[in-house]
Structures are given as C-alpha cells and as structure tokens.
Design a protein around this nucleic acid. Structure first.
Lengths: 183, 183
DNA sequence: GCCCTATGTTTTACTTATAAAACACATGCT
DNA sequence: AGCATGTGTTTTATAAGTAAAACATAGGGC
C-alpha cells in the first residue's frame, strides 16, 4: 500500500491506527493540504507516548522515573564520572533539571558527588555501589519488557524500522540547527 | 542488513546517530544483553523529542503550545462540538489538563462553551470564528514545516517508515492493555 | 595583581501536568 | 419520591520542568 512501490498488498484495507483516522478527518476538511508528514510525525509522537507509558512499568517498580534512569544509565554505560553539564548533554535535559535529579538521587544514596580539585566550579558525579546494582538489576527487565512490547512486529520489520529511524535521526541531529533558521 | 542476519552490509560503518553510540556503550558494558529493542525504542523517543522541538517553532509564532493546538485541531477536524471528556480522549490528555486548556482558550476567545440542555453535567466546546481562523492559518505552515523537516528522507523511505510505524502503532494500540498485566 | 568576559552550576519564579478528591448531576431501584 | 451508584467535570495539592537570573570561579589581557 505504500504509495511508492504501487503494489496493492493484501493489507490494502484499513490502516486502523488512530493517526490514520485523524489524517482522514483532516483530509476531509482540507482536501487541498498534503497531510503526508502527519503520517510519519504523528505516528512517531504517538508511538513514543504509548511506548513510554509501557516502558515506565518496570522502572516504576524500581522506584525510578525515566529521566532518573537515563541519568543513572549514562553513568553506568560510560563507566566513569560525569559532570552535571555532561549529564545534561548526555540525557538531553536542561542543567537545572539535572541539578534537581542529582540532589534527589544523592539523597537516595544512588549517586555521589565530589568537587573537582583543579576547577572548583565543576562537580563530578558517580554511581554508588547501590546505584550500579540498581541499574544492573533494572536494565535486563527493561530490555525484556521492551522486547515483549516490540514482539508485535516481525524481526525483519523491527530491523527495517530501526534502520529507517537511524537514517532520519542521523540527519535530524545533523541539521536541526540549520532548519531552525530556515523554518 | 542489520544485526540479525549477520551480513556485514556496506552500511556497516557509520550508524552515527546518538542512539547508536549509546547502544554501543551498553554492549561494551553488558555484552550478554540483547540491546536490539533500544535501537527502535530509543530512536523513536529521540526522534519524537527532536521533532517536537522543531515542530513547536511555527506553533509558537501563533502563540500556541502543541497541546493547545491539538485541542483546537480536534475541534476543527471533527467539525462539530466536543465535550471535555471527548477532547481528553481525542488529544490523549487527562481531563484535568483539558479543563485548564479550555479555560485559557476561552479567555483568549478561541473556543466557547455551552452547557448541555439534557444532561447538565456535560459541557460542549466549539471553536469561535477566531479559533477556526487560527487553526486554518497555522495548519498549512505547520505541514510545510513538517515537510521540510522530513525532506531529509527520500520519499520512498518516508512511506516505508509511515507504513512500519502504522503497523507498530496499530498493534500497540490494540495490545497495550494486555501487556500491562503480563509485563 | 586586577578586571573583564566566559563557563559550570544552582537558585528563583513560574508554568504545566497529574492523581486523587470533591462536586454535580443522571439513572435505576425500591 | 428517595436513595445508591455511576459518570462527567472541576478543584486541590503536589511534583517536575523550564528560562532567566544569580553565583562562583577560571583564564586572559593589561
């Protein structure tokens, strides 16, 4: 059905997800507009929302929000200390948000901070043993949960999807700055 | 082409997006885990974040947040009045959030409310002329902006991506309830 | 050494979302 | 009619994020 290859596959019928329904409504009201982008961007947004809702389940059992897990995960996967600024960049959040998260996680004994000896503006944050244990305990659950969620797709489709998203993401990350001016 | 079939395709080299780098780090630390799901879910989340940031630009010029635009858009595309509850379902937000948005949009003269004559619990919300004009003015800008953002992909890739996401989304929307118990 | 500017981090003021309780009303049972 | 229960909506208390200002300190030019 993908308009480009023209082959009317057997699944011609009703792209029955909510985004398709929304797009149909828009086309009925504004037939002159090209609603093509909605079919991609709307679905990415909706998938992200549903997946995050689903993903949160195993994390919540561990008492972590996703941003908290992202912060701990950044420390775990890099294997070394990170400064608040690096953590902000690594987790795509604002510095202020990271400050608050570090405070909370410190109070919970999951991370520790120490000042830099040379440059006294900067701090270094590292996982405690408890923090590392928590990440290592949650990650397998998290991954198997995600595997279950994605099992609705055939492995081949999953790989294709990953590849296409990688292509989009690579270019988006490269060009976001440029688009900002041209939009 | 990707990890599953084992064939080292020509695009072995530069999966250069940030998610690929993160996955590599995790594999180095936990080689025993299957990080496959991250390549899909991580990218969906990251794309959603980047796209929303980009998308917001034209909306902000119109003085609207995305949730506000979603609410107005729901009224515009359905073509009739909606109750707060219907708006909440239509825009995937909580009832409380919708209540607040309606209040604000009413103050700005973009929507109006009236009580139901039969059932005095329910309200009906509709676009004002100004509201409809605003949506109709913003939507084309929004779509052309999205088209520009997606132009980093070939049209064929865009369609494939839309189709794969539609498949995932259709199944996710169908099975979210079931997974909740099994996870 | 002192000032200027740049950088890393935290604080402040504010906005927004959410869950749970409260509220308002309908509907069905007696 | 009167009451119990369920549904639609709003309020309340609270959590979490952000932008902008404030702070603390580095590093270079004079």
């Amino acid at each position: 059905m993908t308009a480009t290859n023209g082959t009317p596959s057997r699944r011609e019928a009703p792209t029955a997800d909510t985004v398709a329904a929304v797009v149909r409504q828009w086309r009925a009201v504004h037939p002159e507009l090209d609603t093509g982008p909605m079919e991609v961007i709307g679905r990415i947004n909706r998938c992200a929302a549903l997946l995050q809702q689903a993903e949160d389940a195993p994390l919540r059992r561990a008492g972590l929000s996703r941003p908290e897990f992202d912060l701990l995960g950044a420390l775990r996967r890099t294997g070394h200390e990170l400064t608040p600024g690096e953590l902000a960049r690594e987790t795509f959040s604002s510095g202020a948000a990271v400050t608050k998260r570090i405070k909370q996680l410190t109070e919970r004994g999951l991370v520790e901070r120490r000042g830099d000896t040379r440059d006294r503006r900067v701090a270094h944050v590292r996982l405690t043993d408890a923090g590392r244990a928590l990440v290592d305990g949650v990650l397998p659950e998290q991954l198997s949960y995600e595997t279950a969620v994605l099992s609705v797709l055939a492995p081949e489709g999953r790989d294709d999807l990953a590849a296409l998203l990688a292509e989009l993401l690579t270019r988006l990350e490269g060009r976001m700055g440029a688009l900002r001016t041209g939009g």
